[in-house]
Structures are given as C-alpha cells and as structure tokens.
Design a protein around this nucleic acid. Sequence first.
DNA 1: CTGAAAGCGCTAACAG
DNA 2: CTGTTAGCGCTTTCAG
Lengths: 362, 362
Amino acid sequence: MATISDVARAAGVSPATVSRVFNSGRVTPERAERVRRAAAELGFSPNRVARSLRIQRASVIGLLIPDIENPFFTALARGVEDAAQRTNHSLVLCNSDEDVRKESRYLEIALAEQMAGVIVAAASRRRTDLSALAARGMPVVAVDRRPRSAEVDTVLVDNQHGSAEAVAHLLDRGYRRIACVTGPAGASTSEDRLAGYRAELLDAGVAEEWIRAHTRHADFREEGGYAAMRELLALPVPPDAVFVANNLMTVGALRALREAGVEPPEFGILSFGDVPWASLVRPPLTTVHLPAYELGVAAAELLQERIAGSGEPLRTVVLRTALRPRSSTAGPDPDDWPAESPAARRDGQDDAPVTVRRGEDE
Amino acid sequence: MATISDVARAAGVSPATVSRVFNSGRVTPERAERVRRAAAELGFSPNRVARSLRIQRASVIGLLIPDIENPFFTALARGVEDAAQRTNHSLVLCNSDEDVRKESRYLEIALAEQMAGVIVAAASRRRTDLSALAARGMPVVAVDRRPRSAEVDTVLVDNQHGSAEAVAHLLDRGYRRIACVTGPAGASTSEDRLAGYRAELLDAGVAEEWIRAHTRHADFREEGGYAAMRELLALPVPPDAVFVANNLMTVGALRALREAGVEPPEFGILSFGDVPWASLVRPPLTTVHLPAYELGVAAAELLQERIAGSGEPLRTVVLRTALRPRSSTAGPDPDDWPAESPAARRDGQDDAPVTVRRGEDE
DNA sequence: CTGAAAGCGCTAACAG
DNA sequence: CTGTTAGCGCTTTCAG
C-alpha cells in the first residue's frame, strides 16, 4: 500500500505537498498534476486511519437503530445514507436489537472510533444515555425516539397528532369500542401514540376506565402484537376496532384476527406506520404514513451542521404523518361499504380488473 | 478523552504496561489491578484509531449488500452481525444500491479504513472487481452472488437445484405453460436460477424456443417484476404459471396478476426467496426458502478464519434451499383444490378459525 | 516483568 | 507556494 511519502518521492515533492493536493491546499497546478499522476501510478489512496488519528476525527458517521429488520428503520437508513454521501461521509450502521447493553457498546465504539457524529434511534427513553457522548463533544442527533436527556438535536414525527387523527378516523367510520396496542412503556413513541389515542377517546366521552382496560403494551414486534390482540379479543367486552402503534405489531394483530375468524372491516384495524408490500395485504390496510426516509435525511442534515461546527441552540424538527385511509376501516356495518372501496382505490391498490386473453393455445 | 499515558501516569507505570493490561500482555496482577482502577477512574477507553494505525488493521469488518430494503439482505446482515460479535468485530454495513460505482467506492473505503475484512454480495458478476482487495491481502468473502474472479472464499445457496425443484413442483401440480421472470443478466443468481428453470423444462420436453419466448429479465425490484409479468400476460400464448426469481419481483408480479383479474392458484405463482409478512398475503405463497441468516453466519465464519490467518485453499460453501409449498400453486384446476389447503396449513398460516364472543356490550 | 523509544501515515504550524 | 518538523495514541521491539 503506497503511502504519501512514496508518492512524494515519485513526484519529487515533499509529503506535505502531496497532502495539500488531496486536501484542497494551495499547490501550483503543474506540481499538483505531477503529484496526481504519481499517485495514480502507484495506486495510492490516502490512509483514512492515519488521517483520522491526526485530525482527531473520522469521516464516518454512525447510525444506531433498534431493529434492522423493520422496514421503517431501513428506509430511515437510506435517507441518512443519501444525505451523508453528499458530504463525503460514510455510514456505519449498527443494530442495537432494542437492547440497551448492545446499544451502549456501540456508543462506546463510536467514541473510540472517533466517529464524526452519531444518529441514534434510542432503544429506551429512560435508559439510553447520550450524555457521555455529548459531554465529550461528539455531535449527536436523536431520531424517531426522544431520549430523556434532551441535550441533543432531535428529529421526530408528530406521533400524538397522528394517533389522534387516526382514532378520529375510526370514530368517524362508526367504530365505538376502539382498543389500542402500543409499544413498550419505556419508549417515547409508545407513549406519545398512546397519548394521542387516549386524548381522542376521552374527548369523545369514553370512560378512562374503559380505555385503560382496552389498552395493551407490547414489544413493537410481531409476536407482541399477536399476543396483545388475542388478549383483547378475549375480553368480556371485546373491541370492534383496534389502533396498533407500529407496523410489525399490526402483522401479529392481523394474524390473531384471522385465527379468530374476525375479518376487517367489520372489525376495524389501523396501523401506525406503513406496512411494506401493502399491495399484497387483503383487505388493504388503513395506515398512518411515516416519513421514514425524510426523517433520516433531516437527521443527517442536522448532524452535518453540528459537525461543521454550528453553535446554534438545540433544535427539534417534527415531521408530519399522513393518514392513508383504506378498506380495513371502512366501518363496522357491511351496508356502509362501497362495492368497490373508493378509499382503497385512491392509492391505486385496487384498480379495476382488466381482462386478458389467456390460454388459446397449448 | 483520557489517553494511555494519562492512565500510565495516574497508575505510576509506563504506557507500555497499560497497553499490555488491555492486550493480554504479561503484567503482575497487582500492577494490572492498579492500572485498571486508574483507567476506570479516568473513564479511559483505548483509542481504536491509533490502535488500528499502529497494528495496520481495524477491528471492523465490512458488509457490502446491494439492497438494504430487501429483507433477504437484512436477515443476512443479522447473521453476519451475530457471528462477528462473537469475535469482537464490529460491523459496518454498506448499501451499494445495485450500483457498481457506489460499490467500488465502498470497496476503496474498506481498504483505506484498513478494515479487518469484507463480505460482499456483489452488485454485478462481471463488473464487480474484488481482485484489488485480494491483491493487497485483505480477507474477502463473497456471499449470495458469485463474482467472476473466483479468487475468494464464497458462500452461496444452491440456486440451480432450488429452481429446478420449484419448477418440478409446478409441473407436478399440473401447470403446463410455466413462464419465468429472472433477474438482471449480469448476476450469478439470475443466471443460476434461470438455468435451473430451463433445465427442468427442457427435461420435461418443452421446446427451447417456447422457453426463450416466456423468459423475462428484470431488475430484482418490484417494478421490474410488475412490468415483466404484464408482458408475459400479454403474450399470444400466455403462461398458466410463473416462476419468479426473487421476492421483490414477486410482489410486482402479484400486483400485475391482480390488475389483470388473474387469481392464483388457477394461475400458479412461485417465489424464489421468502416473502416477508407472508401471513398477510392471500393466497399463501409457495416459496423457495433461502437460509439468509445462515448464509451470513457462514460468511462471517469463513472471513474470521482468514483474518486469523488461515492459509487453507479457497472454499465454497453451498447451503440448501427448501421448497415451501402453499396454496398459490395448488394447481390450475379448481377441482383439485382441497377445501382447506393442507399444503398451506402445514406451516400454520391457515389455522382454522376459532370462535370468539364479541359485542355483547358496548 | 517492565520501561524507553521508535514509528504506523498523515496533517498543520512554522520558516523559508 | 513549499519543505521541515513534530506529533496524534497506540503497540512493539529491545534492553534491563
């Protein structure tokens, strides 16, 4: 592996000059050209490790997510990556697996690797501790989940508003016994989504007690959603609709519904968070769309400003969600359902069949 | 940030001793204890950048995948991560986006960052060039896709056998005009899966010409599968079943089928590669299961052996696929379909409904 | 077993 | 504009 000195020798200049050529220092064009040629010939590319050690900062940013198999977080990661690429940062993706211990290990690595900064979707609101990083001057941005110590820039979606809107939609469609499956008690997303749900029901005159009895905390995973839905269905007063606080749990909930022979939209189901491959799901699911990619972009941009040395006060960016009504919440009464659900057709999932010639031969 | 010298001073020893404490060097227990205490007090953690520069190797392994939004690759990534963790390697995930230019950029970064090794699911069989890495002594393992230059250890699934088995299944169920949607011509996976399909059909006496007319190359993405399926349906002799070479394209193909008013299993559809959230898809899809996680684990283990200095000859590990028959290939003739598909029930997706009390109250 | 010293490859003063 | 020089934090000979 050629070093900067090899190139310097080959080009007949000093190492410093070579360095300058690769770092927009001032070098006469003629010399610069000579250096570039020599570098190309030797197949030289600067050693980033040495560079990082010298300037006390790597050109890598870390992204810490709690579940790499959740499409929401992979979309977010793409957003971060695309934005990072624009400033020549490369991305290190770490999967904390919703495990605070793994997470803190990765956080330490970020420090030890002298990463330029990190973006964190925290595993826990209470137990994720970002203060150590901030204390050592590492730029940090929290995304999706708001950690307790609010000493960092933050990018969120408007969970509470989005949830309230979703529940309002369910009420509007005629559901009256709306249950809720939310995430773990520790996470800000769980709490905010639950809060939106509660606020809307209380506003509609539903008893505090009823709400509490029809709320379940689960783990944001498929199995948790499945178990919670089964519990709800087994209640003495089972619900006629459910608001599920994330996409994976919705998959589980749907499975539970199917097993129980309960079919939407007679029973309403609404997912907070997009369900990938939505076009395959029958009936088409009403969802609250989350701008995952945009969340990633915004977080990366905030981080880059900090890396560049912005001294502005802390900022919190809140992105809006969008309700996407489809057939799974058409209403409890079959008489109300349109023959071809106009709600579903709106986003092209249910285009009218077209006929095709088939099988004239063979 | 405390350095090794700070700790040395605090503990009254030399920097070398501190280093030895953290690297299993021989130090008297008493001194070691003193060092550890001092380190803890100062919140010292070794600077990995300096370490990497000195020993000319980082403790990071790179994983290069072509599509981070494809569940197959995220499952693979988890396998790599779990295996890497066992040897204290951290994982850097890079998404080449099926783009050879991005990919080669990341490959250069791997070199410049002095990563311990890289695992590559190549974007292109022909144009992905791993020889530069291998030439500079960087351990490399190819996974899922076999790059042209076979100078590296490789972990694959048995694409050709899996495909042949899948097509045999379709023939067995009574389909006679089986089309194929495969991936880009450049990828080894496309070619191997296509080869398995062709071999099986030729063996069944189908004309070479017919096969060629009913084969489409697409891009391994949803839109590609959609377009290809539409083309196939518009043929003068449309197929009565389709073998789709990856999961994402299957989603697109299903959409095209639906739009055309064609419903499985009258029209058979089989996906090479698991479709996540399969439980939501109606009808349940017959798939060829791919051991994605295990692929990742195997690749990481191979890589770790190379990193540890194994001088063994190059190895290729081939993992088996498994056909998972479900209702989408029950056969072209409705008379053959079981009332409750036993094939589908086999993996629990179609458990019989159970009744549940509902709505006695409000 | 322990310490002194050199140096991994690069960048940033500083002089020229 | 260019070269010389020192040093980022760590590991690793080499003496002791």
